[in-house]
Amino acid sequence: MTDLRDLYQEVILDHNKSPHNYREMTDATRMALGYNPLCGDKMKLYAKIEGDRIADVTFQGSGCAISKASASIMTDAIKGKTLAEAEALYGKFHDLLTGPPDVKADGAGLGKLAVFSGVREFPARVKCATLAWHTLQTVLKNTQDVAKTE
């Protein structure tokens, strides 16, 4: 049986309590709103894009522990990355969340994002973990030269 600790890992609880990059960005070049109508969670994602690089990224909003920690760890992970690298990371993260629940998730190449490997065993919570990433998609799609993953 799945343990709740698989979902609520220490790292996730820590980020929920003290999220990183949780602030408004006054000089953002792009901003997008994320909304999960299922639970009413709202998120604002700010980004400063310089060339093809994400120079800075922050967020604000209300959400559950999973969505908040996901946004927090995501912003850490994509800061300084190119848009294409962020896209690629999203693809890997998505696979991590939606893979078959009976197969142990492979967090290779995901770094800290691998802590969300337990989410696939809680299908009702996958959307919480992807809210920040879907919002990021909107931010990235602001330009025509960004590749689509799906």
């Binding site: 979902l7 969670d41 522990a65 999973i66």
Partner: peptide, 27 residues
């Protein structure tokens, strides 16, 4: 306090307790 209803719902679910969390179609 400091716990989102969605997280409450998931933890209660694992105890066999079904409640609703969210806006209850009454935003």
């Amino acid at each position: 306090e400091n716990v989102h209803p969605h997280d409450i719902g998931t933890i209660l679910d694992r105890e066999g307790i079904a409640i609703r969390t969210g806006h209850h179609c009454a935003q």
